[in-house]
Design a protein around this nucleic acid. Structure first.
Lengths: 213, 213
DNA sequence: CCAAAAGTGTTACAAGTACACCCATGA
DNA sequence: TCATGGGTGTACTTGTAACACTTTTGG
């Protein structure tokens, strides 16, 4: 070993890949990006030498996904030898959650970005590299976190009805939930506050709007 | 960008750090290693260019921790710029669980390895780099996983009493649990099978030995 | 007034807690 | 036979599920 032992080894490249998800019309969606060779891939890029992982994620969110400031959490790190044909790349995957309205506005200006549909952890559009596997892990993590966190609120606008929240749960878990039980469980948890405002417009009683506590 | 875009950037080093934990006498312990400069650090090392992350973990477990084949899971990836004074090192942390007897046997031959005590996520021995933070995250993850997995069994020998299992839970969660409730919950979960054998020797009724289902 | 979806009350069941008690052993 | 910890039964409380019901709107 030399005076700096770090110099003695070949280094892998380190990338960040982003699984940006949203729930629209009963379907879980993932943002994917057109790729020159492989058809579609997750937005991602190399971690620069003077960037933290979070810096890279913020850069990917802003530049590649055009969703700066979205909720994001680290997912898992993938290190198989052959995951990138160009060379050894270790990828630190993050997942991001965005309300459907916001992503649909950004995609209106869209070109090389689109939303792929995920069902049972599988993506309807086949993705390059090991990105199908990354999406699967992200979908599983999201479903697991619904039970014990308020993470679903990241998929809704600032004010939302309990029915909209239930739709998010039913979409991600692929189950039908009972309305009264769902209402009470959510309200008892203390994650929500009622705004006193109502969503009008339907041919039925207006639904109260709630916000995060 | 050149023909191989990976070549265009300086690359960070990638390391694996290992949080090998066990539960002994009501205390959660972490294996730490003497370091030339900093007093104590987690066992760890660089990921070689032709090694998967899991390969590196297996190598660390065998060579550095002398605990080959232990249960291991990925914990989190740490990427702060200044976490290693020698240069930019991104560390993929893993946690490992080993029954107390096994680790105590291996440490009998001990030299530069010892068990530090963790309480409330904090390590009694101050560690170098950001390893105190890594230990904290590992302790939190372990406590969270007790609730919904059979992970505690990794900290016990192949056959064990329900009292021993309860001790593991109480140690990691830092709470006292009610014996009847604990027994029934564990048996109802289906993770355990009774062996029909008993642990004798105490001045009291022998305790039945259980094994993983 | 009717259809539709929001929202509530009532009962039943299941999971979890508290506590009292019995059991088998070594000394 | 006593102390000790293993192991069980029973009542109580809490959380969840099922179902029927009322409320408020648009057409």
């Amino acid at each position: 070993m030399s005076s700096n032992p770090l110099a003695a080894y070949d280094r892998p490249s380190v990338a960040v890949d982003l699984v940006l998800m949203t729930a629209v019309d009963g379907a879980l969606k993932v943002l994917v990006q057109r790729h020159p060779q492989m058809a579609w891939v997750l937005p991602g890029g190399l971690v620069h030498i003077d960037e933290t992982l979070e810096d890279t994620v913020a850069r990917m969110l802003a530049q590649k996904a055009r969703m700066p400031g979205a909720f994001v959490e680290q997912l898992y790190t993938f290190g198989a030898l052959d995951r990138d044909p160009r060379g050894r790349v270790i990828s630190v995957a993050y997942y991001a959650l965005v309300p459907a309205e916001r992503i649909e506005r950004a995609l209106a200006a869209g070109d090389d970005l689109r939303l792929a549909t995920v069902s049972n952890g599988a993506c309807d559009t086949p993705l390059g590299y090991d990105h199908d596997q990354i999406v699967r892990v992200a979908a599983e993590r999201l479903a697991a976190k619904l039970d014990y966190t308020a993470i679903a609120l990241e998929l809704l606008p600032a004010e939302f009805t309990l029915r909209a929240l239930q739709d998010v749960y039913e979409t991600i878990l692929s189950v039908r939930l009972a309305k009264p039980a769902f209402r009470r469980k959510m309200l008892d948890r203390g994650f929500l506050t009622s705004t006193g405002r109502f969503e009008t417009g339907g041919a039925h009683r207006p639904a109260e709007l709630y916000a995060r506590a």
